[in-house]
Design a binder for these strands. Structure first.
Length: 411
DNA sequence: GATCCACAGGAATAGAAGGTGT
DNA sequence: ACACCTTCTATTCCTGTGGATC
């Protein structure tokens, strides 16, 4: 009876809210990462410096290459986006055409796909037939075609490569070398400037010295936001996003504090805010409170982990399961458990070498934690532990038919 | 102190998948 | 039709090593 009452009143609440046209969030898009506010608080200096560098383009010259450093969520991409936006508008007004493709190297997933995206942005594939496809050509060939195109059209290009460190990790700096060298080969009229955005401060060490000096003609470091700065950013954003009184100050403060605990990550702070709002709306709360923020934190973590495990290859899943099932978690034991799981599922186990590699991949993703311990005479091994709740692993694996038997068979 | 375990993790390479130009 | 491209997964072969036990 009571349950029914509660359900009825819930339904009433939904109707009431809908009827009064009131919901917690009034402008949802302002809570996404893609949304870039008009003015970025606490980043005036950096924006001005960037604008200064790029302004060279209006004098008809090539702006210096530029490297931006900073931890995730410190506003690097946002600053670039706002400045570039203004630049493009201004150049339109002045009748100077500047092309500013913004490419995310990490999302592109490979150097080749990145080149393909650059080609798309610059319109190579619209102008002529068959210029750069998404595979098949050699890297050098694809790069040459892009540069040739720029040269022929005398284009002014400021190429922004976000997460440039992941590009270099995967493919080395050959592509960057070609782009930095391009200007020497290019006649008058056209040019390419590079703006690299890097999360890693040690990124420069991985570069060939020639590329390094050329790429970082200028550089800017973005420092993490302080908790107080995060709080201000959030409350400003909340004013835009939420209806009057739909979120408590305490909730905002908590978001700021949680995101600040890591390294002043504004992206994370805003993610928290958005998910907290979603959770609050789902339970038809009158406003977003601290408990929603806490729940949001858990949900975000769980969702990303869930996603990663679900999309892993079968053997990676086997390894993950083997780690949860192994007792003391050293490599030999995990491999034993893994092999027997494979046999149960009638699959050929991979070599140990490959399994250690998979384990270190899992480690990098933060799904497991490893610790190298030496037991003297008894060898040297890793101690591997799962770093996510067991329930998350089970949740992720239960949809995969290969694992349904294994999961139910023991514990 | 020397030894020696039980691995860690680098290097080279293969081959399949999804493509290219000529 | 054929040589050749990149990327990803996986294998083979290999050298390196921290510290408890001899």
């Amino acid at each position: 009876m009571r349950v029914d009452d509660k359900k009825m009143s819930d339904i009433d609440n939904i109707f009431d809210r809908a009827a009064s046209g009131k919901s917690l969030v009034k402008k949802r898009e302002t809570l996404t990462i893609d949304y870039v506010p008009e003015k970025l608080p606490f980043r005036d200096q950096e924006a001005a410096a960037l604008a200064q560098t790029l302004s060279t383009v209006f004098k008809g010259a090539r702006p210096s290459n530029l490297l931006l450093f900073g931890k995730p969520g410190t506003g690097k991409t946002a600053v670039v986006k706002t400045v570039v936006d203004r630049l493009v508008k201004k150049s339109g007004a002045l009748g100077i055409t500047v092309d500013v493709p913004i490419i995310n190297a990490k999302l592109a997933n490979s150097a080749y796909k990145m080149l393909f995206e650059i080609a798309e942005h610059l319109g190579l594939n619209k102008e002529e037939k068959k210029v750069v496809h998404f595979t098949g050509l050699s890297m050098g060939e694809a790069t040459d075609r892009i540069l040739q195109f720029i040269q022929n059209k005398k284009m002014r290009v400021i190429l922004v490569i976000d997460e440039i460190d992941s590009l270099v990790d995967r493919n080395g700096d050959d592509v960057l070398y070609s782009f930095t060298r391009a200007n020497e080969r290019m006649g008058k009229g056209g040019f390419v400037s590079l703006i690299g955005i890097s999360n890693s401060l040690t990124f420069k060490d991985k570069l060939d010295p020639r590329v390094r000096s050329s790429l970082s003609e200028e550089e800017t470091v973005f420092n993490p936001y302080t908790v107080e700065q995060l709080r201000q950013i959030l409350s400003e954003r909340a004013k835009l996003a939420f209806s009057e009184g739909a979120i408590t100050d305490a909730a905002i403060n908590l978001c700021a504090a949680m995101a600040g605990r890591e390294h002043g990550d504004a992206r994370k702070a805003i993610d928290l805010l958005r998910v907290a709002a979603e959770l609050a709306e789902r339970e038809h709360a009158l406003r977003v409170e601290e408990k929603h923020v806490r729940a949001a934190q858990e949900k975000i973590e769980k969702d990303t982990n869930l996603e990663v495990i679900k999309n892993a290859t079968t053997h990676t899943k086997f390894v993950m399961l083997a780690i949860t099932k192994s007792k003391n978690g050293n490599t030999g034991e995990v491999y034993e458990v893994y092999s027997s799981l494979c046999r149960q599922a009638e699959q050929e186990p991979l070599t140990q070498r490959r399994v250690t590699q998979i384990i270190s991949e899992l480690d990098q993703l933060g799904l497991v934690s490893t610790d190298i311990v030496s037991q003297g005479r008894y060898g040297r091994s890793q101690k591997i532990k799962v770093a996510v709740p067991l329930a998350t692993v089970k949740d992720a694996l239960k949809d995969d038919p290969t694992f349904s038997d294994l999961m139910s068979s023991s514990d």
